[in-house]
Amino acid sequence: MPGRQKHTFYFWLLGTALLIALFFNVSMGSVHIPFKEVIGAIFGGGANKETWNYIITEYRLPKAITAILTGSGLAVSGLLMQTLFRNPLAGPFVLGLSSGASLGVAVLILGAGAFGGLLGGILMSQWSLVVASAIGSFLVLLAVLAVTFRIKDTMAILIIGLMFGSVTAAVVAVLSYFTNAERLQQFIFWSFGSLGNQSWSGVLILTICCVTGLLLAFGSGKSLNALLLGENYAKSMGVHIKKTTVFIILATSILAGGITAFVGPIAFVGLAVPHITRQFFTSSNHFTLLPAVMLVGGILMLLCDTVAQLPYSEYTLPINAITSLLGAPVVIWLLVRKRKLLF
């Protein structure tokens, strides 16, 4: 089948692009390190200078892997949302999932001051950040879902998502009024989003979140395909709607919640990547689309991070700003060109 050959070709192309983007990302940074030394540091030979070695293995490599995990995970959660809600505009950010995660983190960081001392210390561990953020996005997703059971209008769902965003902003504003400056600063920096400053143990936790979410997503692949026809058709083909919905929601909240906890709310990747991917892959089969959006998401995030890093300068831009600057025009361009977005 020519379609399948084309897909195989695209997978090879994207795989290669991901590797190139990875090397490109690792070799760019505030300090100039020759490409040969970068290769040496990654493949164990070690770079000539100990500082270069340290920069690459302890800073740039964890950051690059975080970028890939973030891009892939958010793209998958976007794809899951679009199929679950059968709405091309759905995505973790648009539906308020990221806001929910922010709220969870805000309550944790800004509220931790109230507990103080030892308990505050325990609350600030990385796992608790992940759990708070995942619970936040999970609750928002449940609320959005509860609304969709009552209102079939897909536009309403998006409006509800926007409303949750406003509510979150308001609650954060109230919380920040009562908290001390240090905590507030911590939260503000978190909300800018940053892929850097991840320890290898942090990367490990993020990997566990992503793998769990992805396994759930792939496990629901067949039901996701059936959902493309609509709930009634899916039911008539033997799909257990409630079970499937729970699995998809779990996968999405673990992915979006976990990632947001580590790198902050990242806009547009979840929404834009599935649409960019559909420009190349004509298939709607989730067993093709899931790995495809993972690759595209990873590549996109690596490139965004390379730009955000402002190579050879001391400054780093907030990653959230870069993804928005890139993602928003892409979505507008797709809308204008195709007149409507399909999923």
Binding site: T83, R86, L227, L229, G230, Y233, S236, R278, S284, L342
Partner: peptide, 12 residues
Amino acid sequence: VVLTEPPASKNL
């Protein structure tokens, strides 16, 4: 079944 509603995804 063949329902009155068209397939939800028109991209299939």
